[in-house]
Nucleic acid binder design. Structure first.
Lengths: 283, 283
DNA sequence: ACTTGCGCCTGACGTAACGTGAGGTGGTAT
DNA sequence: ATACCACCTCACGTTACGTCAGGCGCAAGT
């Protein structure tokens, strides 16, 4: 960082003044092909040896190349760089370019963060499950991918306090919930077609109910069921809910077939419905 | 997140089973051309209408496309994706792929962070200076670009405690230092050629000396000058220092010409040298 | 004098994941 | 009959080079 002079003093001007392309490439760290390319694209055009036609690079070219490398590092394209290669000073307009680059890079980083989070959660799931049906995993991943969009959509129809309860907040909660969803879907596959009397089916629904309760909480769960199934009188609201569901379906594919969905709905009303009424009666 | 069934129940199987390519594109959000491309590359091949040759997409294709989109979101290439498109389950080998993706993404993010930091510091400098010589700015940016490499290189020849002092740590320190360097180089340009007696030159050297002191501290500064200029008896060490300087020069281009460097060295010995001896004598 | 080999040259195709036309076909509305 | 639409295939453009292929000037070895 602190570098005033090279410390060579007077004999420094004995320094070799020119480089062949391979020497230049070696001393700057870029490839010969890249130098050819920059020449071809009029970004860095060195002198030529009149007789052999060989490129002859000088100190000034070294500076120019550093300029190119620096702007590339800032994320600019060679076309953008070319425009700035003519001028000898950077002025205020360069700030705009930098700010643009900045917002691009910030967006990129956000995407990367989301992807990294999804990867880590997926690895965790896979390590515990050994083998996972692709539809289920894709569904989960798609869900992670659009967590933010989903929340925004949900804001339109669900009250804030319920929202806070509804979306698992901590990493641990998310993992527990995802793990639970995985086993649930697995069992749906396994028990598909059985009747609501089957003890395994009952166990499945029971565990799922408990999982939801654990994450969402009783109060919010009731509010949710209110919103989605009971309020049929409010027409305008129903439309909003309809489009909400469609949007979610577009973003997050269902991990189970339509038959399985229908079966689920059937046994849910057969088994859980009465339970609900029971509890409802307790109030 | 919580989505068990679409709530349509029995009439759901009246759903339209097939899509034309434009319908499919619209409902999934990918472009028609992309679907053509996936077909061409055998990644997603829908059925065809025997007579017209038109592509006919079904529900199953929707699932497959979601699979593709998800893996793309994780940062995988279409070639990699193609390999995973055949299987119906993800097993442990998928974990390796994910871990690989993870490390790639982490590297990308680190690069972005470094670039963002450099951009923000540069914008700050430009806002204060209005117009900056390109060589100076490039030098600073190149320096930011390899801060880590520079520190690693320096570790080879400088003691740890001096290291800690030598490299400005906080963002503020860095900005102060860079700002000071900028004005210093500007004045070097402006006063180049004048004698060491010139008051402006003396002011320049004075300010610079004070800047270095402010950032590095007196003790470390002495150690540094010891390392770089006084220790000529230690031959092995001198070689290490020589290669160190060369490496740094390759990474960070000098913002001033060789003539300016020589002039600087001259006036530094003329003016600061005596000062040094004075202080040295105080011990 | 001949050949070998090195370093350089130009030209041209390959890469990833599509975007963007150009030109042709089948089916429908006017 | 004609216009129009949605679809088809073919094919070139994009970015920043990597990777041959064929050819030239010059030096050393035989």
């Amino acid at each position: 960082m602190i570098k005033l002079s090279s410390g060579k003093g007077i004999e420094a001007d004995m320094k070799k003044e020119t480089f062949s392309i391979s020497e230049f490439a070696k001393s700057t760290g870029v490839s010969v092909r890249t130098l050819h390319y920059y020449d071809e694209k009029n970004i860095l055009k060195p002198k030529r040896d009149d007789h052999t036609g060989h490129r002859v690079y000088e100190q000034e070219d070294m500076i120019q190349l550093h300029k190119i490398m620096t702007m590339k590092f800032l994320g600019m394209s060679l076309d953008e760089i070319k425009d700035y290669m003519q001028a000898n000073t950077f002025d205020l307009s360069f700030i705009d370019t930098l700010r643009l680059q900045e917002s691009k890079l910030i967006k990129d980083r956000e995407q990367i963060d989301i992807a990294l989070d999804a990867i880590q959660r997926t690895v965790y799931l896979l390590e515990n499950e050994k083998e996972v049906d692709h539809a289920v995993l894709i569904s989960l991943l798609a869900s992670m991918q659009n967590e933010k969009k989903q929340e925004e959509l949900a804001k339109g129809i669900i009250k804030d306090d319920v929202m806070k309860k509804m979306f698992p907040q901590t990493a641990k909660e998310k993992m527990i919930f995802e793990q639970g969803l995985l086993t649930f879907y697995k069992r749906v596959r396994a028990h598909f077609g059985k009747s609501a009397d089957d003890p395994e089916v009952q166990q499945m629904l029971d565990d799922f109910y408990r999982l939801i309760l654990e994450v969402v909480g009783m109060d919010s769960l009731k509010e949710l069921t209110d919103i989605f199934s009971l309020n049929i009188e409010d027409k305008e609201n129903e439309e909003r809910i309809e489009t909400y569901i469609q949007e979610i379906e577009r973003l997050v594919p269902s991990p189970i077939t339509e038959e399985e969905e229908a079966w689920l709905e059937q046994i849910t009303t057969d088994y859980v419905g009465p339970l609900w009424d029971e509890e409802e009666g307790e109030n």
